[in-house]
Structures are given as C-alpha cells and as structure tokens.
Design a protein around this nucleic acid. Structure first.
Lengths: 238, 238
DNA sequence: TGCGCGATTTGCGTCAGGACAACGTTCCGG
DNA sequence: CCGGAACGTTGTCCTGACGCAAATCGCGCA
C-alpha cells in the first residue's frame, strides 16, 4: 500500500541510481506530508527523527543566533533532500525549516537512513554529492561576505534565488515565492533598511521590479555584472 | 608491499569502521607524501586526481576570489580527510591547500574512491559525516559574519584554531603552527590592520600573547565571553 | 655580528552602512 | 467601507572599519 507513486519523484536526483522496484521499496517507507504556508517542517534543536525530500513548494531554512537574531541559511527547492541531520551524526536539527509557500514533502523516519543506505549505496553517494554541493555554496557565501560590499551581496543573493526558484514572466524573472526585504536582509547579513534602499535604487534604474513580498529581476545580466563588481555602483551614478 | 603501516592511521576517523585486513587493503593503494612548509598539496582549479588524509602537520585551505583576493576557508588537522572533490562530483579542486608547516599526507588516486566506497560502505558514511560537520562549521561562519562585529569574529576564529590545533604551554594555549595577522584577517574577512589593532588591544589586557607568526591564548574563557558578545568591547575600556 | 626583508604597529582621514524614527502603502477582517 | 496591522520607504545621524602610509621590530642568513 504505497501512498507515494513513483511518478512524483521522477526528477529527484537522490533516486537517480535506483530501479523501479528498488524505488518502490524506498517509497514504501515514506509518507507524504503537506505543510501550510509559514508552518515549520522541523525546528532548530528538535530531535532529528525524520529526513525529507521536498516535492512541491519552497522552504526557508533559518538559524537563530545566540543573540536571538535569525539568519536565512538557504532555500530548499523541489527535488532536494533536506533534514538529513541523522546522516551527519547529529541528534538534533541544526536549523529550522519553514514553508515559504504551501509545500509537500516526503518524510522518512531517521532510523530508515542507515538501513536504506546499506541496501542502496547510491543513496549515500547521492547524499554525499548533495551535501558537498551545499558546502560549496556555503563556502561561496563566506567568500562573498568576506570580500564583497553589501550591494554585491544582495545582487548575488537575488541571482541565486532566481536560479533555484525563478519563473520567467514577460518583464523578466520572478522569484517564485513571497520574499520580504527582511528575508533578503537575513540572507545577506544586513538590515532591511539597507536592502530597501538598494532595491529602490535598482528599481529606479529598471534593474528590478519590486512589490510587496515580491521581486522581479528585469535585467539579470546587468545584475550579474554588478554582483561581480564590474559596475562601480548602482546607487551613486543614478 | 604496503609502504604505509596501520599504526599511523590508528586515530583516523575515516577508517574507524574497518578491520585490520580491510585497512591493509585500503592502505595498499595509498602512498605517503611529504610536503615542505609553504608548498601546495593541490591548487584551486587543478584536476582533482587524488584525495588525501593528513597524517602530520597542518594545512591551510584557501580560495581566491574573482578579484584576486585570498580567503582562508579552513585549516586541516591530522587525521582529517581532504581533497575529496571527486566524491562531491567535482572535476577540479575548488580550493588550494598549502602546508602551513612541514606535513605528511596519505594520497590515493581519485579513481580509487568509487571502488573503495562500494566495497567498504563505512567509508562513504564517514565521509558524509566529515563533509556534514564541515558544512556545519561553514554555516556557523556565515552566521558569524552576518551577525557579529569584527572583534567577535576574530575571537571566534582564534578559539576555533586553538580547538583544532591548540597546544597547552605554561602561559596558555598556543596555536601550533605559524600564523600571521594576514592569515587571521583572511579567515575573518577583514584586514591585517584591523586584526593587528585588535590583537594589540587584547595583548595589553593580558588576553593573548603575540609574536611573529605566533599567537598564544592566555585567557580562552574571557575570549569566549567576548566572542559571545557578553563583554561590551575590549578596545574601548583599555 | 650586521644586514635586509617581511611582519607588525599605529595615526589619520574617509565612508559605507547600521540605528533610530517617521511616514506612506497594501492587505485583510469586520 | 473602515480600521488596524504588517510591510515598505526614506531622511538624518553616527560609529566602526578600511585604506593609505610611514615607522618599527624581529628573524634568518651571510
């Protein structure tokens, strides 16, 4: 009685190495869960009793600092595995995952992980690649934050969001879930005030198009040049 | 004809799950290489033809930004696996590894990785945990850089260095390899000038003890309080 | 022992960006 | 249609950190 059909995970990289029968066996242990907008999939510090694969929607992963400030670590897009704390030898989730929009995820008990990876080694290899690429992304962010100005960091953040959750519309590329200036600020390590100023300046130049919890990139190419520092500044030169 | 003896890898976490015979089999494919101080183990962008385990010494892993600035990503301590680009599906090394002191590492051809992990799944599990914990560290750094002042970041960096490469001496904990203010600056995303100022202030208060490419933590506990932001500032009250 | 180079220290000017505050706008329930 | 709340914009002020540059120190080597 598998409630989860193979077709819904056709493009999940984690399962790329599995045959149909194997896939059914893995899916048999999963259940599909729906998360309303703004509800938490798991909380930072909670016991890591499950791991997940996102099927539909978008999640925001955030950490809370000792001082209580929240930082957006990354966003999860459909097809990604997340909450694999168990595989990293963590007893508790290191961050909180919140549904940015209504989302659906597959959910396995953490206890299933060792068994599944032992039986299907390609799962471990896939997970290693996923975590590795996440490490690359995170290191890239460290480098950004070390060496770049706020404006370039915001540009990078928007480009990254557009890349993983962008949707083409007539006037450009729209980020496919509600995102506030506060969220962008949390991603780039600045304040919503500064983000607001920067986006206003960009909007005047036709680089982006704003709105309430909505951002459209009208000129991603120019934005990229700006992120690379090949344009002096978008705020001074009018 | 294994040139590498089991005893030298007794405390390498990667091999924890292997029996003596299995260990010998893995070591048979490795060779031991010595790296003089300041020599590179591999270069960023070079083809990832090997992966390594550090036996002795310390390495600095650094990335070069598009603008040519160098950032110290992390330091490698004995017992750690590194250069596993192949396992992360990367064809080229994403960073440069330089010997901070004379170092010795075991070296396998990258081609051996898929074969070894297929035969010994515990290797993949170990590697996953290693990469995972590295991801945790890197995310922690992102959060530091987002939410903390330069002084707190420097404190955190020193504590982290002391944790993974600290050596107890009479006056405190010494960092066990030559490290310049420039290096600390590259770790914390600031300039050597600022680092120099901060360390000078700390030295006046007896928090640390400096020297040419040498740092001793005389009061790690107080330094930790400072890193957490529980002490207003060490520079004003001096 | 003396020399030279690289590491370190430090003063000063400048400015990006954070803090604070007030105001405008959109959304939603009644 | 109205009121309130959350979200976004903008102005002003001010601090912390960087850039520049020059002085000083210390180690390694001859």
């Amino acid at each position: 009685m598998p409630p989860v059909d193979r077709s819904v995970v056709a493009d999940v990289a984690l399962f790329a190495g599995l045959g149909p029968a194997e896939l059914d066996e893995v899916l048999r242990e999963a259940r599909s869960v729906r998360y309303p907008k703004d509800s938490a999939v798991f909380h930072q510090g909670a016991e890591a009793d499950s791991f997940f694969v996102l099927l539909h929607g978008h999640l925001r992963v955030e950490k809370t600092t000792p001082q209580g400030q929240q930082i957006a670590v990354r966003y999860v897009s459909p097809g990604e595995i997340f909450g694999v704390a168990q595989a990293l030898a963590l007893k508790h989730y290191p961050a909180t995952a919140v549904a940015a929009v209504e989302s659906i995820a597959l959910c396995w008990p953490s206890a299933a992980w060792p068994r599944l990876t032992a039986k299907f080694p390609s799962l471990a290899a896939s997970a290693l690649q996923t975590v590795g690429s996440r490490l690359q992304d995170t290191q890239a962010r460290v480098i950004e934050m070390s060496s770049e100005q706020v404006e370039q960091r915001v540009a990078h953040a928007l480009l990254r969001l557009a890349k993983q959750a962008g949707r083409r519309i007539e006037t450009g590329v729209e980020i496919d879930f509600p995102i506030s200036r506060q969220d962008v600020a949390e991603m780039t390590g600045t304040t919503l005030h500064t983000v607001s100023r920067i986006l206003s300046a960009w909007e005047q130049q036709g680089l982006v198009e704003g709105g309430r919890q909505r951002i459209v990139l009208r000129d991603p190419h120019k934005l990229f040049a700006l992120a690379e520092g090949r344009i002096p500044s978008a705020r001074s030169g009018g």
